[in-house]
Design a protein around this nucleic acid. Structure first.
Lengths: 110, 110
DNA sequence: TCCAATAATCGACTATCGTCGATGGTCGAT
DNA sequence: ATCGACCATCGACGATAGTCGATTATTGGA
């Protein structure tokens, strides 16, 4: 007999995948970091770190920290340009969000 | 003159909205919590706390803690049933995820 | 009434995170 | 070569979060 409550049509999440998704969501789990990402995403050109500092209104080291976190998860791309650093958004990353949600809910990625 | 890099067609995120989205993502920013949510989401019926404990493999107080966090953000619904607590998933919540992503990217919700 | 089962709460510990100021390093211009 | 602008890194601090074990509260059954 089977007392399990699991629906065989809805696959369980592997712990490793859960951690991967979690670190992904954790990147979006801070208000300041979302403002940094939004500033880059809504710009009509690449932004420098200093411009983001002026826009978000926190310290320069704080913005640098958040940009590094965002870049590690590939939400943004950073490219050195002389003494400046040009930051652009990676639109594809946020588009994977619905798929992650589907996996959590147990819907097989079609 | 205007040296801003902002695209007028892509609205900026309000700091309050950023914090709201952030607390929402923070709820999904832990691997164990995602496993708890996935266990409930992939079940074919309501699950008890003890069943989730057996399934996820962490302490009972830990599962209780995560369920409270998930319930506060309305990812799950908890209903007392005698000495047990029946937990069900709220499928609507994760469907709002794409919209949040769009707002972060500066796309006006149509 | 007493007992077992279930789950919430508490207290403590550790780890991680966000923020800042200060420092250091790199590049371009003078 | 020196200087200034720009950004990354470091060190420190306080705050928050995840986990566990123990305790407590409530419910249902014997």
């Amino acid at each position: 007999m089977n007392s399990s409550s699991q629906n065989p049509t809805r696959p369980a999440l592997h712990p490793d995948d859960a951690d991967e998704y979690a670190s992904w969501f954790r990147c979006l789990a801070d208000g300041t970091r979302l403002l940094v990402l939004n500033a880059v995403a809504t710009a009509d050109r690449a932004m420098t770190v200093g411009e983001i500092v002026d826009r978000v209104g926190v310290g320069q080291s704080t913005v640098s920290h958040h940009l590094r976190v965002l870049a590690e998860e590939r939400f943004v791309h950073m490219q050195a340009d002389g003494t400046r650093t040009l930051v652009t958004v990676n639109a594809d990353c946020l588009q994977a969000l619905p798929e992650a949600a589907a996996r959590i809910m147990g819907f097989d990625p079609a």
